[in-house]
């Protein structure tokens, strides 16, 4: 008898925990803030993609992009490319912050950045460069 009650108790507890888990199953990313940043990044990607392909720009471990091979960019364009990189990193920082805020957990920003850092690299195209765990540039 007691056993049955304990089982019920655990079931209730488990349901409750499941409810919690379900609440966490999705991160809220459908916010005007995320949409605005995402749109801006999507527009910029047209300019960044050839730079990823040429190896001039690579993906860093911390969820940013960086100038990897300056020699692949003519001097006259270097400022523009640096500007592009700076703007992209600013957007990425804003994106990570905005997702954390939209989910009412501003302290998740660092974890979200780490998650993204890994996923950008995992999903990068063959031939693009990324920083491996040791920080060295590696061609995918």
């Amino acid at each position: 008898m007691k056993n049955w009650i304990m089982k019920t108790l655990w079931l209730i507890a488990a349901l409750f925990a499941a409810g919690q888990a379900f609440a966490q199953a999705n991160l809220e990313i459908n916010t005007p803030g995320v949409a605005a940043i995402q749109g801006s990044m999507q527009k910029r990607h047209g300019e960044l993609a050839p730079l990823y392909a040429s190896g001039a720009v690579g993906l860093t471990r911390d969820g940013n992009v960086a100038l990897r091979d300056p020699a692949a960019v003519p001097l006259a364009q270097r400022a523009a490319v640096n500007g592009l990189i700076a703007a992209e990193n600013q957007d990425r920082a804003a994106l990570y912050r905005e997702i954390a805020r939209a989910n009412s957990h501003p302290e998740w920003e660092g974890d979200i950045r780490n998650t993204f850092g890994q996923r950008w690299i995992d999903r990068a195209q063959a031939g693009w460069y990324y920083q491996n765990a040791a920080g060295a540039w590696t061609r995918k």
Binding site: L51, A56, V81, F116, W120
Partner: peptide, 30 residues
Amino acid sequence: AAEKAADRIIDEVWQLKGGVPTPPAPAPGA
């Protein structure tokens, strides 16, 4: 959940869903 969210955003930003992975657009210094 964060990975799932990241993937959805990466799909959008890099236009990975829907055929051509990256448009070969001219870029400064490419």
